[in-house]
């Protein structure tokens, strides 16, 4: 694998919420100390259930909100330093949102929406418009038919193509796709996924692909990061995560996918109950309350991300040498 393009270290985001009038101030631990790399040219999938912090991570990566702690390095340079201004960083990293309609200004024509970004970065208007029309063709929309239209005149799939074109207008290296195909109909979703793969090849893009649809994540991603309650549970090659996961949560997640086999339906739910509230996460390993392999130590000791196989890290006491869990490997001498 190549060098890391994006490096995330110790990223934390806590949202304060109003406690009772005299109650203690509470925080939602949306993202709680995560670290990972995004390699140049790969697609990193992020999966997890609601409240796991995957969307917050996307917004933090995009610098749409300030992290409580931690840093993000792009190509080795820290964002917001003289080496790499925030404006320059935003040219390099772009994002596609889930709601295709809400992410387009209803009062702007399609080409104006796409051309806005380049104009902000000093591209003359005419050139920006030309670039917008080129991109429209690239995302499969006839420029002469669509450039002058408004968002409400288009279908969801067409709008999402435009959002992709808008993200590409700054010629970024990384595109963050936050549930970008989740709202589309299945027959349209396949078209957009194909388009994303084509564009990745053509523009040598790196994707961070966030979705709750495990089939789609598996199809799109080279590596997958599984998040649970603001923590990284496991990160590794896509096949390994889906076929041979180390973390009990990753295993439960993949076994929750519908079987597509009427003769071998799922007969027992891999997990019971819902994910706990990130306001008050369980102590120790956050998954221990739902984990069938949990032991006493899991409620006390917080697992750290440990290398379990090549390029494959897992945060589980079962894989952590000397953790005290009965399945844990012995400490290497």
């Amino acid at each position: 694998m190549t060098k890391p393009l994006l490096t995330v270290r110790g990223l934390v985001k806590h949202f304060p919420i109003a406690g009772g009038l005299f109650g203690p101030k509470k925080v939602v631990r949306a993202v709680d100390d995560i670290a990972f790399d995004v390699m140049d040219g790969e697609t990193l999938g992020i999966v997890g259930e609601s409240g796991c912090g995957k969307s917050t991570t996307a917004r933090l990566l995009m610098h749409l909100m300030d992290p409580t702690a931690g840093e993000i390095l792009f190509d080795g340079a820290k964002v917001g330093t003289p080496d790499l201004s925030l404006t320059e960083y935003r040219r390099q990293v772009q994002m596609v949102f889930q709601d295709s309609y809400a992410s387009l200004n209803p009062r702007l024509t399609i080409e104006s929406s796409i051309a806005f970004g380049p104009q902000v970065h000093g591209v003359p208007q005419r050139e920006a418009i030309e670039r917008a029309r080129d991109l429209l063709a690239k995302v499969g929309l006839e420029p002469s038919r669509f450039a002058g239209r408004y968002p409400h005149e288009l279908s969801g799939g067409q709008r999402q193509r435009i959002n992709i074109a808008r993200a590409l207008a700054l010629r970024p290296k990384i595109v963050i796709l936050d549930e970008a195909v989740s709202a589309l109909d299945k027959s349209v979703e396949a078209q957009v996924l194909n388009l994303l793969l084509d564009l990745k090849d053509e523009f040598k893009l790196t994707y961070v692909f966030i979705s709750h649809d495990l089939h789609v994540v598996r199809y799109m991603s080279d590596r997958v990061m599984v998040m649970y309650l603001g923590k990284v549970a496991e990160i590794g090659p896509s096949e390994a995560i889906f076929d041979d996961p180390f973390h009990p949560y990753s295993a439960a997640l993949t076994r929750s996918m519908p079987t597509m086999d009427p003769d071998n339906r799922t007969n027992e739910a891999p997990l019971f109950g819902d994910p706990p509230n990130p306001i008050d996460p369980p102590p120790g390993c956050r998954f221990h309350t739902r984990c069938s392999l949990a032991e006493g130590v899991c409620a006390q000791r917080e697992p750290v991300l440990t290398r379990a196989a090549e390029l494959h890290d897992v945060a589980c006491l079962r894989s952590e040498p000397g953790s005290g869990h009965s399945a844990a490997p012995a400490v290497a001498a």
Binding site: S187, A190, Q191, L193, H215, Y219, M220, F242
Partner: peptide, 25 residues
């Protein structure tokens, strides 16, 4: 047929394109 074929599923090789239904509903 198109709906079933356009699904991303585990048996696919990396980078293989989906057999999508063209157009919109």
């Amino acid at each position: 047929i198109g709906l079933l074929k356009s699904r991303a599923h585990g048996a696919m090789t990396k980078g293989q394109r989906l057999d999508a239904i063209p157009g919109s509903p």
